[in-house]
Amino acid sequence: MPHARVHNFSISLDGFATGEPQSLEAPFGHAGERLHEWMFATRFWDESGSAGVDDSFAQRNTVGIGAEIMGANKFGPPEWQDDPEWKGWWGDNPPFHSPTFVLTHRPRPPLAMEGGTTYHFLDASPAEALAAAFEAADGQDVRIGGGATVVRDFVAAGLVDFMHLVQVPIVLGRGSRVWDGLEAVEDDYGIEAVSAPSGVTHLTFTRKSAG
């Protein structure tokens, strides 16, 4: 049975997945790239990178994934919907290589890119979006790609089977938090933590079986 999964999702010690304000020049606001430096140092990101604990977790990001779901703020800067030429942050050959569903209140026609990525723009509930993504994934898993609001909404709806969050030892103080409104989420998951030499902590949440 296919699952909905979150991978390589970085958060600060105080739970923020991005800073503010977000813009074309600063996609992660005042956080800059600090939340993702652990990943940039891995072989997953660069073949000359390290092959340690961080890389082992990072590599699981793409295994068995048949479709992606992301929020509007991950696809582009504020008001990208006003630019008909905007095609996402990732250029002509995005890294998803699968059907990718962008949640937005202003849908547009599907956009086919190089490398097998096709963006589908949906105004849909989490359950509706996940159903569409599972159909497109053709028996494989669906990655819930973020940002924080999307992850939070899918967890709150009981739709996420597995989460890999990477807690980075910085305090942002403001931005978009993943935990807001998810009181006692730990009751629904088995949780493991692995500390890495880089200073980050890999947190995995595996949904407990009913009963």
Rank of each mutant, 00 (worst) to 15 (best):
A41E: 00
T42W: 03
F44G: 07
D46M: 13
E47K: 13
S48G: 15
S50T: 14
A51Q: 15
A51V: 10
G52K: 00
G52M: 10
A58H: 09
A58Q: 00
V63Q: 15
G64Q: 11
I65S: 03
E68Y: 12
I69Y: 06
M70K: 00
M70N: 11
A72I: 07
N73G: 07
P77A: 13
P77I: 07
E79Y: 14
E79S: 10
W80S: 05
D83R: 08
W86L: 09
G88V: 00
F96P: 00
F96M: 04
S98N: 11
P99W: 08
T100H: 03
F101V: 03
T104K: 12
H105G: 13
P107C: 10
P107G: 06
R108K: 13
P109N: 11
P110H: 12
L111D: 02
L111W: 02
M113W: 01
G116I: 06
T117Q: 00
T118F: 05
H120G: 04
D123I: 12
A127F: 12
L130S: 02
A132W: 05
A132M: 11
A132R: 06
E135A: 15
A136H: 04
D138H: 15
D138P: 03
R143M: 10
R143D: 03
I144N: 04
A148P: 05
T149P: 10
T149W: 09
V151F: 07
V151S: 05
R152K: 12
D153R: 11
D153Y: 04
V155T: 08
V155Q: 02
A157D: 11
G158E: 14
F162N: 01
L165V: 09
